[in-house]
């Protein structure tokens, strides 16, 4: 119900994907993908390895141009643009301000050669912040928000635990207050208790900030906890798309049924 009330408040989708195709030679990674993402909505993409989830995410976040189809997004001023029609400098600015990308491996999303504070401050400097004290103050606020000890602000990320690195990556992305965040397996590679904590944090942040998010995961529990809607992919195509609870409690497609029934019960 939560998702629906949000939709009513904003009548334009934040992101619209139309007939997106991407193949690598003869291998099709994504086939005819269509969906809308609304402001404040969290969409989870699930499916087995090789289903095209990560390729789809790369196409959405501007990393990889699709062969066919459109990725339309609504700007803050309400105008709609195709992500791959705008000039690249503009796309880069967009990705650093309005959007965020959280990688599965913190090494892909963080700069390991500079301190945690610099990692968080980088986006601020990219959009023109030139006051050291100001940058530091903002960075400290976000570190605190992500439950990273501010005393460790000047330490290098490799001295952090895996969970902390992942939280640092999230802080680095949220510092410019994006409206849309892409996450590729944000809890992959973390042990279960850290996973639970991170999920809890993510859930409260998404709620507080009104973030829209696309989360790629193969963990249905993550989807259940975070997502408003769920998209099931198989062999590059979307086989089922619906409200998370609906898809998980009453899967219609045989592959979704298989996926749901394969979850280990304790």
């Amino acid at each position: 119900m939560n998702a629906i009330s949000k939709i009513a408040a904003n009548d334009l989708p934040l992101l619209s994907v139309r007939q997106l195709d991407k193949s690598f030679g003869a291998r099709t990674a994504c086939r005819n993908i269509n969906f809308d993402l609304w402001p404040g909505e969290v969409l989870a993409v699930v499916g087995e390895s090789g289903a095209g989830k990560s390729t789809l995410l790369r196409c959405l976040c501007g990393d990889q141009q699709p062969d066919l189809g459109q990725v339309l997004f609504t700007r803050r001023d309400g105008s709609i643009s195709d992500l791959y029609d705008i000039p690249e400098p503009e796309r880069r600015i967009l990705m650093r301000t309005d959007w965020g990308i959280i990688h599965q491996n913190p090494r892909d999303g963080l700069r390991f050669g500079v301190s945690a504070g610099a990692n968080v401050g980088e986006r601020l400097m990219a959009i023109g912040a030139r006051n050291y004290a100001e940058i530091r103050r903002t960075a400290a606020i976000w570190l605190e928000r992500l439950e990273i000890d501010v005393a460790r602000m000047d330490e290098l990320p490799f001295t952090f635990s895996g969970g902390m690195q992942q939280r640092l990556q999230i802080a680095r992305n949220l510092v410019t207050q994006p409206r849309l965040v892409f996450m590729d397996e944000p809890t992959g590679g973390l042990d279960v208790s850290v996973q639970a904590k991170l999920l809890d944090l993510l859930r409260s942040l998404v709620g507080e900030l009104g973030l829209a998010a696309v989360i790629v995961t193969h963990d249905l529990a993550v989807a259940r906890l975070l997502a408003d809607r769920l998209m099931v992919m198989q062999g590059g195509a979307v086989v089922e798309l619906g409200l998370t609870d609906q898809v998980l409690d009453d899967p219609q497609h045989p592959y979704s049924q298989l996926l749901v029934s394969s979850v280990l019960q304790i």
């Binding site: 301190s115 602000m153 000047d154």
Partner: peptide, 13 residues
């Protein structure tokens, strides 16, 4: 932007 990251890092250290 990353050039300023270098200067930031200098001041932080």
């Amino acid at each position: 932007a990353i050039m300023h990251v270098k200067l930031y890092e200098d001041i932080a250290r």
